[in-house]
Design a protein around this nucleic acid. Structure first.
Lengths: 346, 346
DNA sequence: TGTTAAAATGTGCTCGAACACAATAAAAAT
DNA sequence: ATTTTTATTGTGTTCGAGCACATTTTAACA
């Protein structure tokens, strides 16, 4: 148990007043070289840890953090994010931080831009956002940056020097995991990657997952597996997938790169004689239902709640504990089957 | 943004002094009925949240928590626990808590008893321990309890009214997960549950895992799987398992209930013509090696680091934030394969 | 040498809760 | 009615950091 030093202790050891120590610690200047040396000598010798209670008690400034994410009314995937933010809120409610959530419509670029404008008008100290629209997100982040507002992102990776922090998963690896699972389920055969509900060109996450998935099979003994790709957007989805499967009777496995595996499961389950292995993403209620029916074999958990929570706490702790903002935090990629699913929902 | 009330605010609203408010809040008595009513009326109306910074700044009492766990020199499984404790230590170093680790020899009951005695001599405020020896653990916990020392456990479940908190996993469910994985790997056939390195009678975790494992297959269509059990303690282990497998050529899958799957993998790998599916526990380096060689198909992660961390923070937050101690915290049971293993190690 | 400006240093208050102690009011005893 | 006892209420200090302001020291100039 080492002694805990206070500013007063340091002042006494250095033979100066606590005002001077304070000036040295925050290098506010107005300190003679002589005094500076005396204080630094003491600081080198001891390990001074400022008392954070005292600091945050004194500081009256309230740090404001805005969180921008898609409205879960449009896509239930986002609900856990709000829960994660609320958890962070609760945990740090005693501190001088204000967390405010702004929702935008994930189907509308305009809504995203507008919401960013609203956030900008509150001139917060930091913004945590889901960069759903590539170009617009970059624009928004650069605007924040130019105004001295810290910008962090989560869920979707995005390369920009204006971004201070990213929380998410390694999507390439995520694709490899799906591949490994389908390998175990099938041993050999034809598998289709199914991209639904989003534009392939705009959805980097789909591309990365596909890359990882194919990469895994490329390193395997050749000839065992054949990998196809199937892309389709929502409205026409049902009939097209049905036709696609009928046209490709060799397909024994599907990898759905979005959280919409339940839609695929619905179609598969109509033809129970044809057994098709199915791996998808996210613990939506619809997905869990088909997981329990064993139509879906595995789900990969992207842990949106934890992503949001960590994104928020990373910023909060930066402000109140002066912690370094970690540039990248990759979450473990959880494999979910019928038996461990319930542990992850809460 | 609701207003944050202070004791001074309450005093003004109730028309009394802050000393009186303080006496009401901590019901230290010496308050007239009239004053009590006035203060309570205000308290009912507003949501008073004491400023924890101010409180812990004033309080000079240092809470002491002792952590008792097996020495990782005897079993590398325990190393992550120490890491978890250190993480908790670091996170709360500014607060008035002292975390002290005491190690015991997991192979020696006497060592466990002695270490508990040492802990008792420091008369801590709380103890967090791994109750490796059933009877002795109960005794120790009751002693702590009688002296007003809070006792929490992690890793191994133990039923006793003297225990304030348990952090761990649902071991029955854990067995079911292993079962589900082996079902997927084999479709049908003979599987053996392998209990090694510990006394089956004293190791409740083994029994629970076996129960869960068998329970899963009991609910399946009969006749597809046959489940056997194989128990052996360390020294004679190698030859006996080898003989057992030769005597039972039908066995196509093994479920190892301890962290020693690598020992089984070593034997299996000597005979590559015979393909045996293998599921075990814990991300020890030896296990990971065989996982990457695809001798081990899946590992189940018990997350000892997080168990220790949560056990510790649960107690810490009880002391400094007056949080309720949660009686039971069951961690998710992570499924690990070649592709997501590295995310869980850190 | 005296005066003024500038630089350096020290002092004292604040944040909110906790608690010791002083002050006041009410009740009891003379 | 006055003193003493007891019950109730209020005041003031502390914790450590941060910062405004007062004070002292040193340098610059007339």
């Amino acid at each position: 148990m080492e002694k805990i030093y206070t500013i007063k202790d340091i002042a006494e050891l250095a033979g100066v007043s606590k005002g001077t120590v304070d000036r040295v610690l925050h290098n506010r200047g107005k300190v003679s070289e002589d005094a500076l040396n005396k204080v630094n000598e003491v600081l080198d010798k001891i390990d001074y840890q400022p008392n954070l209670m005292a600091r945050s008690l004194k500081k009256t400034q309230i740090y404001s953090i805005c969180v921008l994410l898609p409205d879960s009314a449009s896509d239930p995937y986002w609900q856990p994010c709000i829960d994660g933010i609320n958890e962070a809120k609760k945990e740090f409610k005693s501190f001088n931080v204000k967390l405010e959530v702004f929702l935008f419509d994930p189907t509308s670029t305009a809504s995203f831009v507008e919401t960013n404008q609203s956030v900008l008008n509150t001139s917060p100290d930091a913004v945590l956002l889901v960069p759903l629209f590539h170009k617009e997100a970059i624009d928004a982040i650069e605007t924040y940056n130019s105004k001295g507002i810290i910008a962090s992102i989560f869920n979707n990776q995005l390369k920009s020097s204006a971004i201070k922090s990213f929380v998410g998963q390694d999507l390439f690896q995520s694709g490899r995991i799906a591949a490994r699972l389908l390998e175990l389920l099938l041993q050999k055969g034809t598998i289709a990657i199914v991209h639904i509900d989003e534009d392939y060109e705009n959805a980097i996450h789909m591309q990365e997952k596909e890359r990882g998935f194919r990469n895994y099979f490329d390193t395997l003994e050749k000839g065992k597996f054949e990998i196809k790709t199937f892309k389709v957007k929502h409205p026409q989805f049902k009939t097209t997938l049905k036709e696609y499967l009928e046209a490709n009777p060799a397909i024994e496995g599907l990898f759905v790169t979005t959280s919409k595996a339940y839609q695929v499961a619905k179609i598969i389950s109509k033809n129970p004689e044809r057994k098709i292995a199915l791996v998808g993403y996210d613990l939506l209620e619809n997905n869990l239902e088909y997981l329990n029916n064993k139509i879906i074999d595995f789900l990969i958990h992207q842990n949106p709640k934890r992503q949001a929570y960590l994104g928020a706490t990373n910023l909060i702790e930066h402000f109140i504990f002066e912690k370094e903002i970690s540039a990248e935090k990759l979450l473990p990629i959880d494999i979910i089957n019928t038996e461990n699913a319930k542990d992850y929902i809460l």
